[in-house]
Computed example of a mutant assay.
Amino acid sequence: MATKPKRKYNTGKIKKFLIFLFLAVLFWVLTKFSREYTATVDASIRYTSIPNETLLAENNPEEVSFDLTTNGFEFFYYKLKQPLITINISKYYTKGNKTVTIPDAQLIGLISGQLNKNLSVKNVSLDALKVNLELLVSKKIPVFSKAEISFKKGFMSLDTLEVKPDSVQISGPSETIKKFDSITTKVKTYKNIDTNFSEDIALELPEVNSLSVTPQEVSISLNVQEFTQKEITLPIQVINLPRDTIIKLIPEVTKVSFNVPVKAFNSVSKNDFRLFCDYSKKNEKENFMLTQLSKRPTGIRDVEIKDKKIDFLIFKQESKE
């Protein structure tokens, strides 16, 4: 059986046809897109240069629409990328006012100036752009640390935790500011501290966009030293004792124990203390007085008086005839 001969295609004619087709489509597109059209375009609004003493209020316009007359190419571009209109608030702001108003005519000029100058902008959706502001107030509030610090055995702090700065500036709308009277650091744990301690720690900032806090972190520090225990014996003094009264304390001396920095162990003596009982505050039913310290050296910790209650006997002097 004889095979049929294969049909040969004229590839040259096909190529010419495709070229003419491409040119025809291109000509049609150029003709179509070169014409002027009028349609509504939506643009985003961005507010810049907010005056330092103000803050943008909520619910200000975020978009504006307008009729745009231009060629098809421009329309195609703005369909791919939404126009962004930037509003410089400081340019229209009057000090002390809570509202910035941009009339329709100015708004059209502002939009046209930020788009292609050959475009025609009409029928803006806003009769006037009104931007609401909130006047800012500032005050200082104290900072409290939430750091959790534990020491290596035998080590302690010489004083309380120091926070620098101990207060921060908080700024925002007056009604919001009233709700805050202090601020804390973030919770952070430090363990086995055995040397002088200093760390920067961030503040727990309020979850309120309209508030600003300066600074947003503080430094915490502690003077840390190794401690050891010491015990001394002190005489007990009596104050507010009537002139004609003689008493005998039982006991007349007592021991005081405390933790002291190792470096200061030898320098702390009984002369650094004053232990007393106040006769005017005696317990008359049980006939005792409480011991108190009116003088003690700085830097010692965990002071314990062995005899907290002191019994006493009263001897009255005989009056002279």
Rank of each mutant, 00 (worst) to 15 (best):
K6L: 11
F17E: 07
L18M: 15
L21N: 05
F22K: 11
A24H: 03
V25G: 15
F27P: 05
F27S: 13
L30N: 08
F33N: 12
E36S: 13
Y37N: 06
V41P: 00
D42V: 10
I45K: 03
T48W: 14
E62M: 13
E63F: 11
V64H: 01
F66Q: 09
F76V: 07
I89F: 12
T99N: 14
L107G: 06
G109Q: 11
L110H: 08
I111L: 02
S112Q: 12
N116V: 03
L119S: 10
L119T: 09
V121Q: 08
L126P: 13
A128I: 12
N132Q: 12
L133C: 10
L135M: 09
P142H: 13
S145P: 11
F151C: 10
F155Q: 03
V163S: 01
G172A: 04
G172M: 05
K179A: 09
T185S: 03
T189W: 03
K191W: 00
T195H: 15
E199M: 09
L205H: 04
E207A: 08
S212D: 06
L222F: 00
E226C: 02
T228H: 00
V238L: 12
P242M: 02
R243C: 12
K248C: 14
T254D: 01
K255L: 15
N259R: 14
S267W: 06
S267E: 10
D272P: 02
F273R: 00
F276Y: 06
E284C: 05
K285F: 07
E286T: 08
L290A: 07
I310N: 02
D311G: 05
L313F: 08
I314V: 12
K316G: 10
K320C: 15
